[in-house]
Simulated assay, not measured.
Amino acid sequence: MPQASTAEQVIDSKNLEPLDIRLLVLDIDGTIAGESNEISETVKQAVGKAQAKGIQVAIATGRMYRSALRFHQALGATLPILAYQGAWIQDPATDKLYQHLPVSRTTAAELLDYFETETLRSRLAVHFYINDQLYVRERNDQTESYRKRSTIQPQFVGDLRNILNDEPTKILALSQEPALVDQLLLDLRQKYTPEELYLTKSVPTFFEAANPAVNKGNAVRFLAEDLLGINRENVMAIGDNFNDVEMLEYAGLGIAMGDAPPEVKALAQWVAPSVDEDGVAAAIEEFIL
Score class of each variant (00 low, 15 high):
79 L>K: 11
58 A>H: 11
196 E>T: 07
153 Q>Y: 03
230 I>K: 09
231 N>R: 11
151 T>A: 09
259 D>C: 00
84 Y>H: 11
152 I>R: 09
141 D>Q: 15
178 P>K: 04
139 R>S: 05
26 L>D: 12
46 A>M: 02
216 K>Y: 11
120 L>D: 02
204 P>W: 00
195 E>H: 08
231 N>Q: 13
67 S>D: 13
185 L>W: 01
203 V>H: 07
139 R>T: 09
145 S>A: 13
13 S>T: 09
3 Q>T: 11
193 T>F: 03
65 Y>K: 11
103 V>P: 06
275 V>G: 02
63 R>I: 00
73 Q>W: 10
136 V>P: 03
172 L>V: 14
268 A>R: 02
100 H>V: 07
289 L>M: 14
75 L>A: 12
160 L>V: 09
211 N>P: 04
132 D>Q: 12
12 D>M: 08
288 I>N: 06
253 L>R: 07
91 D>T: 12
289 L>E: 15
107 T>I: 14
111 L>T: 13
275 V>S: 04
281 A>N: 03
11 I>H: 06
73 Q>N: 09
197 L>R: 00
55 I>T: 04
27 D>W: 07
266 A>Q: 12
158 G>D: 09
229 G>T: 08
57 V>A: 13
198 Y>S: 03
15 N>V: 00
218 N>G: 03
226 D>M: 01
137 R>D: 06
79 L>W: 06
180 L>Q: 12
280 V>R: 02
196 E>C: 04
160 L>A: 05
55 I>N: 10
109 A>G: 04
157 V>Y: 02
87 A>G: 15
58 A>Y: 11
158 G>F: 07
80 P>R: 13
194 P>G: 00
266 A>H: 06
182 D>R: 08
78 T>P: 02
7 A>P: 00
151 T>W: 07
13 S>C: 08
5 S>T: 10
41 E>C: 00
270 W>F: 15
84 Y>L: 12
144 E>S: 05
182 D>M: 00
261 P>L: 02
152 I>H: 06
279 G>A: 10
